[in-house]
Design a protein around this nucleic acid. Structure first.
Length: 557
RNA sequence: UGGGGCAUGGUGCAAUGGCAGCACACCAGCCUUUGGAGCUGUGGAUCUUGGUUCGAAUCCAGGUGCCCCAGCCA
């Protein structure tokens, strides 16, 4: 496929191309406008990639601008975390700016509107403002302060700025139309008074702070942004976005809206994610079950896989809920190509090979990645006592079960054929040990007489094994849409979303690097958690391998 | 009962008046020293009614359904 054919197209890219062609703009500049009030999640990635790629594809620029207009919610910690996550994704920007960089200039622009008679200071209480806004079907009524003269408005605004009035006592409002069918146009607030807490960057310099509507478009204009791309809920704000710019007579970017990313089996709202963390339903914002970038990073997802998912989801205006199965498929697809294969047994069952010499240990050759010959090979030690997966043995095999059962022969990957000869049980009847014999003529995995076995299973030599902790993850919620209903999401938490196991890994995995990713053969992809200790590494399950047998067995029931 | 927006297989996205296609999921088979990967194939969709047109997912009109908006949040 040529790069040309591979290039995604959608209504936004088409609009941008048209704007360039028509001469409406001669260049492309977009902006990434996160509010530094929380950690980034997978939903943000879609918006980020739209802004980044559209700039990049048009040889344009991206500005990372923090929308820090509300000091009661924002913190420097989040600025740093967001930058770090965005960089991890591979996003590049020409500079970092802040809405707060423009507070002075914006204030001058506000005075200009006051002078034009397009803005006024309103002394109504918040309750009165709300009451007089009207409803969806009834027009609002004008504030009694709406017709204050310019001089008084200028004076009051200056005194608001100087901190002479308490929070909530006054606001600056645009003078538009209290009967407008679009409620955003009913004299929207431009500035509100906030004395505390201090702003994370400007400290207590300012006592008034601009609202989103008054700040965003103006900042876009000041920065020469050509395309201000945002999610659908801002569609209703576009008339206001344009009104301010028209009144000021300044450079006018184009706002285009798209639908945000939703995903099943998780929640995306900041409020709900916060509750999960604060009520200890998960272990922090970087819990591998969280849809946050920090969670997914810890889980072992690669940036490439996440970006591929975003690309496959596409861009449109339909309300949509993406399937987490697609994300997982993208992760498998990426890791399949790059992850080294290793043998690990996560639910061990001991097997004693009775006819194998007691003290012998052989080195078996194993392929590191069948998808990538350059990854080479390694040696794996083999001996008389090994561990295999509990799932790989059944005392009474179900139909089509090809793995180990009494009398059956299977291949130990990269080693020998073994045949199960005996089963040892504890007092409760649980199988605790298997006895088997091996065929010395099958070393390496092939029988000289040409006989075949139907199954190949993985194993770890008990004598050479390293004990590790393995954290198995399942979906955080057991309902496709946990967000429906306000309080319901906590009631559909999956109680089994985390399972901690103790397993064994081959020596090649005895001292793994934190963050490195492996495929545990036949089990899935795993990555090394920061909680790892030299004496006990910790692995997170990133995603399982497709399991045809599990599916068959489930279906048979 | 105001304004804005959106309706295409189970899910997400294409088709820009001319054979409804792609990916994931699903199902069947091939292959396999991972029941992985890979390969082949099957099934399944244009919200509804009417109109324009040789021809409509696309244009027009009505209907229905869903989403957003009444923060001094973004």
């Amino acid at each position: 496929m040529s790069p040309e054919e591979n290039k995604p197209t959608d209504f936004i890219r088409e609009a941008v191309a048209e704007d360039l062609k028509s001469g409406r703009y001669t260049y492309v500049r977009t902006r990434l406008p996160p509010e530094p009030n929380g950690y980034l999640h997978i939903g943000h990635v879609k918006a980020f990639m739209i802004d980044y790629l559209i700039a990049k594809e048009n040889n344009g620029e991206l500005i990372l601008r923090f929308d820090d207009t509300n000091p009661t919610k924002e913190e420097t910690e989040f600025v740093e975390a967001i930058e770090d996550d965005a960089r991890w994704l591979g996003i590049e920007w020409v500079k970092v700016t802040y809405a707060s960089d423009y507070f002075n200039e914006l204030y001058e622009w506000a005075k200009k509107l006051v002078l034009m008679g397009k803005a006024y200071v309103d002394d109504q209480t918040p309750e009165e403002v709300s009451k007089n806004r009207g409803t969806l079907t009834e027009p609002g009524v004008n504030s009694p302060y709406r017709d204050r003269d310019v001089e008084e408005n200028m004076d009051l605004l200056e005194r608001m700025k100087n901190g002479e009035f308490p929070d909530g006592s006054r606001i600056l409002r645009a003078k538009i139309d209290m009967a407008h069918p679009n409620i955003n146009m009913r004299d929207p607030a431009m500035y509100r008074i906030i004395h505390n807490p201090p702003h994370h960057r400007t400290g207590d310099t300012w006592k008034i702070y601009p609202m989103y509507d008054w700040s965003h478009g103006q900042n876009d204009s000041m920065e020469g942004i050509t395309h201000s791309l945002c999610s659908l809920e801002y569609e209703n704000h576009r008339p206001l976005y344009e009104w301010f710019l028209d009144q000021l007579g300044v450079f006018k970017p184009r706002q285009i809206e798209f639908s945000r990313l939703n995903m099943n089996y998780t929640v995306m709202s900041k409020r709900k994610l916060r509750r999960l963390v604060e009520e200890n339903r998960v272990n922090g914002w970087d819990d591998p079950r969280m849809p946050t970038l920090r969670g997914m990073r810890r889980r072992g997802y690669t940036a490439e896989a996440i970006l591929d998912f975003i690309r496959r989801v596409g861009v449109a205006k339909n309300y949509s809920v993406s399937d987490v199965a697609l994300l997982e498929e993208c992760v498998r697809d990426d890791l399949n190509k790059r992850a080294l294969r290793r043998m690990a047994v996560i639910r061990p069952l001991k097997v004693v090979i009775d006819n194998y010499p007691d003290d012998l240990a052989e080195e078996m050759d194993a392929i590191n990645n069948p998808e990538d010959p350059s990854a080479g090979t390694r040696k794996v030690p083999f001996s008389k006592v090994i561990y295999i997966e509990q799932d790989d043995f059944r005392e009474v095999p179900p139909p089509k079960y090809h793995r180990l059962f009494p009398g059956n022969e299977v291949r130990l990957r990269y080693a020998y054929f073994i045949r199960c000869t005996d089963v040892v049980k504890d007092a409760n009847g649980n199988v605790i040990e298997i006895h088997a014999t091996y065929d010395p003529a099958t070393r390496g995995g092939d029988a000289q007489d040409g006989r075949k076995v139907k199954s190949t299973i993985h194993w770890v030599s008990a004598k050479h094994a390293k004990e590790v902790e393995v954290r198995m993850y399942d979906r955080l919620f057991n309902k496709e849409n946990p967000e429906e209903g306000e309080e319901g999401f906590l009631n559909c938490l999956n109680p089994n979303s985390l399972e901690i196991l103790s397993g064994y890994v081959e020596p090649a995995l005895a001292s793994p690097t934190v963050g490195s990713r492996y495929q545990f053969e036949r089990l899935g992809y795993f990555c090394v958690d920061p909680d790892s200790l030299p004496e006990k590494p910790v692995f997170n399950q990133t995603v399982n391998l497709k399991d045809t047998w599990a599916k068959m067995e489930k279906k048979g029931k």
